[in-house]
Simulated scan of single mutants.
Amino acid sequence: MPNTVLVLVETINDYLPILEHSGFHLILAPTPAERAQAIQTHAGQIRAVLTRGPLGLTGEEMAALPHLEIICVIGAGHEQVDLQAASNRGIAVTNGAGVNASSVADHAMALLLALVRDIPRADAAVRRGEWPKIMRPSLAGKHLGILGLGAVGMAIAQRGAKGFEMSVSYHNRQHRSDVPYDFCSTPTELARASDFLIVATPGGLGTRNLINKQALDALGPNGFLVNIARASVVNTGELISALEQRRIAGAALDVFDDEPLVPEALKVLSNVVLTPHVAGLSPQATQATVELVGKNLLAHFAGQPLLTPLALPAKA
């Protein structure tokens, strides 16, 4: 009998045959109602769950799946997966860190360009028959700050330094001796040094509100913020206040606290560019992500080492 995988992710349907061709039986449950029904109806056969960071998997759901052995998370973030519960039950957890780095970095630079050059408003003006001549900053020679220098952060840094001739600084949990970029010891120090600040760090308690009023004030009235990571890294209330009061020049956001709901206060601002959490979505990235999930599942059920395991806390 094939191993059954509960799929909670809603954006990868075109690539699910990769898993089916590897011999897995899939149960699709992309909505909360379908998810609850699938867990109730098929609890006895589900041995793996495919999810993503914001969708997660709770300890209660794990307890309701007595044969669950492995959770595979799409992308790097795993903030809503109860890792303690997984550890307590002996459930392995993997993620897809770095697989979609190129796509996310492309989107980060697209957002930065759209924001700094005011592309959405210029496009809208031309469609209205207007022909405004708006003076906007260029990127060359500016200072790019990157919060989180993992695979995505590195890809952004390379695009900024090599593609746009920007100097690059970063803040990371640890200083990296293998990169040519300047290290800043705090997010506020990084913001103060930056013309453009891109958030590329994972979500979770350890990074919550790293960008707060102090950091936004350090970025200043000529500074721009881009977030393609997790909304929780930026204090949304403080960001809205800084944007409304023009204490920063603008922000481009691909992530929000309560997706798909977006604060009306953000929607009405002219110095904001918004996209619906699509930075990591490209055919290449999605295919590679699902292929990695397949390899982790095959390795697990064959008793072999996982390709991208997450370190779990000690059993409580």
Rank of each mutant, 00 (worst) to 15 (best):
V9S: 04
E10L: 08
L16T: 09
L19W: 02
E20L: 09
S22E: 05
G23Y: 08
F24P: 03
H25D: 13
I27S: 02
I27E: 04
T31Y: 04
P32C: 08
R35P: 12
A43S: 14
I46V: 12
T51F: 03
T51V: 06
T51P: 10
R52Q: 11
M62W: 03
A64T: 01
A64G: 02
H67T: 15
L68D: 05
L68V: 13
E69N: 08
I70T: 03
I71G: 01
I74M: 09
E79S: 11
R89T: 09
H107D: 09
R117V: 01
R121P: 06
R121M: 05
D123A: 10
D123Q: 15
V126A: 10
E130Y: 13
W131I: 06
W131Q: 06
P132R: 04
K133F: 07
R136D: 02
S138Q: 12
L144E: 00
G145A: 02
L147D: 01
L147T: 00
L149C: 07
L149I: 06
A157E: 03
Q158F: 05
G160N: 02
G160L: 10
G163H: 10
E165Y: 11
H171W: 08
N172M: 04
R173M: 09
Q174I: 13
S177R: 09
D178K: 11
P187N: 04
E189L: 15
E189P: 05
S194C: 13
F196K: 00
G206E: 13
R208G: 10
Q214G: 05
L216R: 06
D217M: 08
G223W: 00
I228C: 10
A229Q: 02
V234F: 04
E238G: 04
L239H: 03
I240C: 08
G250V: 14
A251G: 04
A252S: 04
L253R: 09
D257M: 07
D258T: 11
P263V: 00
V268G: 02
L269S: 08
S270R: 13
N271E: 14
V273K: 00
P276E: 05
V278I: 15
P283D: 10
Q284S: 10
Q287C: 13
Q287Y: 12
Q287M: 14
A288H: 14
V293C: 05
N296P: 05
H300G: 12
G303S: 01
